[in-house]
């Protein structure tokens, strides 16, 4: 089913770097080409999707057709702050501690 003309455009190292950035992953330089190879192979297989006729089909995001399920608007007790902070890697008082945010993300 994998017709050659269905094969995706080759994934470049720059593409892999770009996707890693979108995914907030720090892929070490030396692993980029192995990852490129694996992803290319998987995308090559997935290309078989292009050979299926999908004209006029509504995408199916979910097996159940439930929409807008509403709960009763009843206040519930919240989880204690101490429980929520117990797993935090860095805490100051009742707050999560993070590095300096102002200055924006590196690009």
């Amino acid at each position: 089913m994998n017709e050659p003309n269905n094969q995706p455009a080759p994934l470049t190292i720059d593409d892999v770097r770009h996707v890693a950035k979108l995914a907030r992953l720090a892929v070490p330089q030396e692993q980029l080409s192995a990852l490129q190879h694996d992803l290319q192979a998987i995308l090559g297989h997935i290309a078989q999707l292009q050979s299926v006729n999908t004209d006029g089909l509504e995408p199916m995001a979910h097996p159940l057709t439930l929409t807008n399920r509403l709960g009763d608007d009843v206040p519930q007790p919240s989880m204690p702050i101490a429980d929520l902070l117990r797993n935090a890697p860095a805490v100051q008082g009742d707050f999560l501690a993070v590095p300096k945010v102002l200055g924006g993300e590196s690009s």
Binding site: K21, L25, A26, V98
Partner: peptide
């Protein structure tokens, strides 16, 4: 790496992006 789970100890993580990416990888 903010609310729970592993957070990188790397000094190279200078900003939030680095903190996310290093912690996750």
């Amino acid at each position: 790496g903010i609310r729970y789970g592993h957070r990188t100890k790397s000094k190279a993580a200078k900003d939030l992006f680095d903190l996310y990416a290093q912690s996750r990888s």
